[in-house]
Design a protein around this nucleic acid. Structure first.
Lengths: 216, 216
DNA sequence: CATCCGTTTTAGTCATACCGAAATCCTAGC
DNA sequence: GCTAGGATTTCGGTATGACTAAAACGGATG
């Protein structure tokens, strides 16, 4: 009933993450791809999660979290992002090096230790990549955002988050001193002008990882 | 071959811990008791560990670590004790509250994070209970010690370590301000006089958990 | 030296989580 | 409306790590 293995947490987290910025529901095959498991494995886990009341699923249809499932998922995301913030803030990690470590620790840290870390960090609201850290009650503060690849030339805004999927992208942007909070104007696909007047050429992979304030 | 699951690590660590202070080899039944598993489970895991070259075992005989097994075991113990030291030193835990958390984290923390913690702590040599922290190469600095229950009346010495097995004992001794480094003279079974002249009545359970400098 | 009894091993199950192959479903294109 | 092909599920099987019950072992005792 209270089904909370590490594997199940990974499924819930991935389902949640897909809807967090993209908006649409995730399909079993997309979930399998993201998790790096076979589609048949997804079918099995989906059955267990549905039986436990954490997701809803009509056969051959997409997956959706229930309220209970979303709470469980945001709890895992909260752990992940607090751990990442801690690794960068206190333990000397760079932002492209924290993902794997957090991926493991998010399943093993106790609530008590998590809150001790949270307090040490001063109760941060965002992780190093700009992702909002869900509150303990599952609340997430997420401003409207769009991808830099969808921005129009001339559009100005602020970088809100960088997807932490690709470490190479994170290293590229760190070298360019681009991160959450950076103000920019898109001068060409994909060249941006920074506040100090400097110009930066952004790789396509990086542009597809940068979420910026939605245009007016 | 490189068999390093969390379960196997627990077996190795427990085999090692038994020999660390007691000296004699552990039997399968004692191992089962300590780990809280059935004897048949031990037989199975022993087979795997022996096949992997981490322990030696003649059927119906006791268990002994190989050099490779001892190295693996001390690595786990090192993790456990550094994590405990960190929880007490930086995260606001008391010494009776760290065991369970360390028990989990010792299997999931990366070498990198462990060394970052180690550096933050200033490369400690002992954990809060007085247990020596093995070096990365498996070396352990362990002074000769004997149990307070084996001490003779009139014997003086210094508390070297308190077994972290029983949290209640740890709380009792913390309340009595007794810990590693405390100098004492045994005045009766089990009453000890401290350096400042104060006297303390020690419970039998606590006395059986206190390791002191060996008598001359 | 035979027997007894606790220890250890064997044999058979279970739960989790994964896989590949085969069957089934859904839908887009005709 | 039919059908091809991709997506999904079903089915059988693998690996880990645990369990119980029962058989096999071996050291201590009479």
């Amino acid at each position: 009933m209270t089904y909370t293995t590490g594997a199940a947490e990974d499924y819930l987290k991935t389902i949640y993450s897909h809807t967090e910025w993209q908006g649409d529901l995730i399909t079993p095959s997309a979930l399998a791809l993201r998790l790096g498991v076979a589609p048949s494995s997804v079918t099995e886990m989906v059955k267990k999660l549905a039986t436990s009341g954490l997701i809803t699923h009509v056969p051959y249809g997409p997956l959706a979290l229930t309220d209970a499932g979303r709470l469980r998922a945001t709890a895992v995301v909260r752990r992940h992002r607090l751990i990442e913030t801690w690794l960068v803030g206190e333990m000397g990690y760079d932002w492209d090096q924290v993902h794997d470590e957090a991926e493991v620790l998010e399943h093993s840290i106790s609530d008590r230790l998590l809150e001790a870390i949270n307090a040490r960090l001063g109760f941060p609201t965002h992780d190093p990549h700009g992702d909002p850290i869900p509150a303990a009650d599952g609340t997430v503060l997420r401003p409207p955002a769009s991808l830099l690849t969808d921005a129009t030339v001339g559009q100005s805004g602020t970088v809100l988050r960088i997807s932490d999927r690709d470490p190479a992208v994170l290293r590229e942007l760190a070298a360019d001193l681009i991160g959450p909070g950076t103000e920019f104007t898109l001068t060409a696909p994909f060249t941006i002008a920074l506040a100090d007047g400097q110009s930066r050429l952004i790789s396509v992979a990086a542009a597809a990882s940068i979420w910026v304030t939605a245009p007016d």
